[in-house]
């Protein structure tokens, strides 16, 4: 069953994020994809994740399709104007890509091509409206298309640090839903109780909510996120658990797996982000009981 049908039927959806290589050696990506192919419902392919130049999401998604894996690609406005975005969206449909996740691109200054020009022709809402228009057979200039694309389109809930911030991102999310988003991906979740409260707040959006499972990897990353990303709420207890574990790497994997397990029955799926550790996805899924 594909993730589109699962979304519609309310079943739990397992999505794994898989980055494209910086270069043309696709062997690692393909190997990692084959390992999880039958255990997940689809992969999400980021585009130039964290502002780092790498093979495009469209290229990566085609590789996944060749492996028989369903795909969702990231689309954002930092690097492409409204013409390029629409052109790629049409190409994505023809190449068999089923889903689009509209995201906000990382600032150019945070990436590895800091001297590049920023486009920002369309924001997230603008891209969602463009997708909605293309699906009705009309482009943004009002011209009729020859054949219309179809996607499951999602958006993200922006990061937030406090209640005020949460209000703002929920208002922004409501606008994105109104513009056509059919599911929403949240920032990383480490605290199930807090997430349950968030779920209540997101209920009025009336779309599937997909929390992000972020593999911490090290105590340093956990500490960094706890300090600089207070919105993700990593407890001291979690940091202590990793620090005191005989195998810290495995402990991080266990935490990710346990969080996925706990979210079943609360959310409508998960997006698992491993940032280069896609080879550890099978172990995470094991600990999640999948």
């Amino acid at each position: 069953m594909n993730f589109q049908k699962k979304f519609a039927s309310g079943e739990f959806v397992f999505l794994a994020e898989m980055n494209t290589p910086k270069g043309v050696d696709i062997s690692e990506m393909i190997t990692n994809a084959r390992r999880i192919k039958d255990r997940i419902d689809g992969v999400i392919i980021p585009d130039m994740d964290n502002g780092v130049m790498r093979m495009s999401a469209l290229g990566g998604a085609v590789l996944m399709r060749q492996q028989g894996i369903e795909t969702i690609i990231h689309v954002y406005g930092r690097d492409r104007n409204k013409m390029a975005i629409q052109g790629d969206i049409l190409a994505a449909h023809v190449l068999g890509i089923q889903g689009i996740l509209v995201v906000r691109g990382e600032e150019m200054a945070s990436g590895d091509h800091t001297d590049a020009r920023v486009v920002d022709d369309l924001d997230e809402e603008g891209i969602l409206r463009a997708i909605a228009s293309l699906q009705k057979g009309i482009d943004l200039a009002g011209f009729e298309l020859k054949g219309t694309p179809k996607f499951v389109t999602g958006c993200t809930l922006g990061p937030y640090k406090d209640d005020d911030g949460l209000e703002r991102v929920i208002t922004a999310a409501a606008k994105k839903v109104e513009a056509g988003a059919g599911f929403i991906v949240t920032p990383p979740v480490f605290d199930i109780d807090r997430f349950s409260i968030l779920m209540e707040r997101l209920k009025p959006l009336n779309i599937p909510v997909i929390p992000t499972i972020f593999l911490l990897k090290t105590v340093g990353i956990a500490r960094y996120m706890a300090t600089y990303e207070p919105g993700v709420f990593i407890s001291e207890q979690t940091i202590k658990r990793i620090r005191q574990a005989p195998d810290r790497e495995l402990e991080c994997i266990k935490i990710a797996g346990e969080t996925i397990h706990a979210l079943r029955g609360i959310a409508q799926g998960v997006r698992i982000v491993t940032l280069g550790w896609e080879h550890r996805l099978p172990t995470i899924l094991e600990y999640a009981g999948i």
Binding site: A109, T114, D115, A116, R117, V118
Partner: peptide, 8 residues
């Protein structure tokens, strides 16, 4: 383009 608006 960093010294331009592209750098924020």
């Amino acid at each position: 383009w960093r010294p331009s608006r592209d750098g924020g």
